[in-house]
Amino acid sequence: MPPVVYKEKCKSCGKCEEVCPGDLMELAEDKKAVCRSARDCWDCMACVKACQFDAIETRIPYQLGYYPAKLIPKMRDKEIEWTCIDINGKVEKFLVKTYNK
């Protein structure tokens, strides 16, 4: 669902544009990433995972889930460290294995 881009963190690398399966992410005229159509995002989080600068956040539409929950993946070689913060500030961490090698 709609990825939120923190423009000050975006370094215009274009990785999000490269991977987005919906062709939705692109660099705007200011060279900052933008999602051209929030409604068309599948929230696969490919762009969030691809961004090395933590500039993109997946947001649940308010119509479905309340503000301000966060889910942040930290990509490592063979795992992802996920941090999930619920609307009351409760934090959960998960280390998810991604490669068995």
């Binding site: 929230d43 989080m45 997946t58 649940i60 889930g65 309340y66 889910l71 996920w82 619920d86 959960e92």
Partner: peptide, 12 residues
Amino acid sequence: RPSYVLFLAGRA
């Protein structure tokens, strides 16, 4: 579906 975990957090 990672964002389902986010959804549950959005409902606390």
